[in-house]
Structure formats: structure tokens, C-alpha cells
Simulated scan of single mutants.
Amino acid sequence: MGKIITFGEVLMRISPRGNKKFIQSNIVEFYFGGTELNVGISIANFGGNVKHISAVSQDSIGEIALAYIRQFGVDTSSIFFSKRPLGVYFLEVGAVLRPSMISYNRSHSAFSEITPEKVDWENALEQGTWLHWTGITPALSKGAFDTLNAGLKLAKEKGLVISADPTYRSGLWTYGQDPQEALTILLKNSTVFIGGVNEINEVLGTAYGFSNKEFVEASKQLIATFPSIEKVFDKIRTSLNSSWHKIRARMWNGTEFRETEDLDITHVVDRIGTGDAFSAGLIYGLQQYDDYKAMEFASAACALKHTYEGDVNFATVNEVINILSGDTSGRLKR
């Protein structure tokens, strides 16, 4: 594997312990994460060579965040300090019939002031073979969009594989940029699309349904619209309730449609970062296996993340492979 590069905000997550609401507790736990950072750390846990590009606060919290990232072997040389505070989000973890609830405090964060001149993309992309981005980052600020766009253009010139997870969250796009227009610009430089019919509909302005047939048709139109995109991978979640989910995945790689079997997660410990775990598993898998096995690896990695507290997937390659081999009993290993 070459060097994998991720770009996005570093956040602190604050939660009451267990499944309590904030009003029930004055004891909280904190974790560091962020969509793209979660992907990078997971790939590093698989043994990958990863660099993360971001900004953190110039204070003790920023220093602790950097120390946290470094312990996984992630290169932090392209993370700069800002006088603004680190972004924070507050999470109440739901259970059974009660959904989880998130509230963000990131509009004036360290990362929100990022601009193209603050990132030396030439240096940041050195030895890079893969760049991953998501739709969270360009939604945060005009500077974040411009910085990402500059990085994608250079990465494409340098021949990097560029994976896009254009997660659309309407509540984040508040600075005046049209989301569809922005994502269209960014996808023109991307090669692997990680998303389903919802994301394709948001980008194309279409109304495809969720059947496998319509997924294939939507993927074909996406690739026709953005010829640089070669493959489309979709993670499918079935939620029986907040604590019991099923995960499977499907793909269209330009020549064939494939779909994995459901993985049953009967007790969700923490679902935050599970989509990021899927992306990380896919990025790792596509450099090791064929498209279908890479998707199976990603789906199993995603399922395992539901068993870890915090934003990051701590699963190893061997643990993921054990799931793929059918070992889902959870029996004690000695």
C-alpha cells in the first residue's frame, strides 16, 4: 500500500456515560474523531501508511488531539495550529426505541478558518497514492470547500486514486454555497464513489428508488455524468431499532453488480463512525483484493465498528477476516 491521505476536521465528542441523557448525568466521556480522521485511523490500524490534513486548536486540547492521532502512527505533519477552539459535538447514545441525538458546536472551530494558502498541497501529497474526502468537509465553510477543491485538482494531476463519500447533511451547508453545485465540482476529480441512491439523487437531482435495479441505473448515470468515476459502492443499513442493525453492501464497478450477505448486529455498542469504518475497509480492501472481496471486507469492518465505543474502529485485519470466514459467535479466544 502507498500513502493514504485524508483531509477533514478533528472533533472532540462529549457524551454521558452509557445510554443516559445529559439531564440524567453530570459525568461525561470524551473521544476524538471526525469523519475523515476516523477513516485514516482505521486504515492505520490495518497497517496502512496514513497522513491526515487538518487544523487543531493551539492549546492543551489541540496538543492532546495530536497525541491521540499520533499514537496510531498517523502522520500529523500537515496539521496546523489555530487560535480558534477545537470543534466539539455532543452525543446522547440512544437505545432500543430511543434514537441517538447529536448537537454540533463547530461553526467557529479551528478547522473552519482553513483556506487554500494554509495547506501546502504539494508537500502534503508527497508520496501519496490515495486521497479520501467526504461531503462533510466542503459543507463547513467556503474556505474548506476551496481548500479541498485545490487538493483534489492537484491529486488528480499526480494520478492519485480519489475516493469520495459525498455524505449530504443539509444542516451543515449554511454559508451560501449550493451543495449540488459544490459536490458536482468535487466529483469531477474523483474515481471511487462511496454512497448509495440517496447520495446519487442529491448530486444528479434524480429520483431513483432503492431496488438493486435502480441502484445500477443510478450508478450508470453517475458514471456517465462523471467519467472519472470508475466504481460505486453502497453500504445498506437496516435498523430494526437503535440497538439492532443489519449491514450489507452492493456495488456497480462498470461491468457487474454484486451484493454481500447481511451481517446481523444484535447489540449496537456505538454506531458513530460505522460508515467511516466501511470506507476505510473499502480503501484498504481495494488495494489488497478484487472489488467484491474488498466490499465484503468493508462490510465486515463496518459491522465490527458497532462493537467499539468512540468514533474510531479498532479492528485489525485478522479480526475482520475472522468475520468473513463466518466466525461471528463472539466466543472467548484464548
Rank of each mutant, 00 (worst) to 15 (best):
I5N: 03
T6A: 07
F7E: 05
L11K: 04
G18I: 01
Q24D: 02
V28I: 09
E29W: 00
N38Q: 02
V39G: 06
G40V: 08
S42I: 01
G47C: 12
A55F: 08
A65G: 07
I79W: 01
P85Y: 02
L86D: 08
Y89S: 08
F90R: 06
F90M: 11
E92A: 14
V93T: 15
G94R: 13
A95R: 13
N105L: 00
H108A: 10
S109Y: 07
E113C: 03
Q127G: 02
G143F: 06
A144D: 04
T147N: 03
G151N: 10
L160Q: 11
V161M: 13
T167S: 14
G176E: 01
E181N: 02
L186H: 00
N189Y: 14
T191Y: 04
T191S: 15
I194K: 07
G196N: 02
G196D: 02
G205D: 10
F210H: 14
K213I: 09
F215M: 04
V216K: 09
L222M: 01
K231Y: 01
K231A: 08
D234N: 15
S239K: 12
R258Q: 14
D264G: 00
D270T: 10
S279E: 03
D290N: 15
D290T: 05
K293D: 13
L304P: 09
F314D: 09
I321Q: 13
N322I: 00
I323Q: 14
R331W: 06
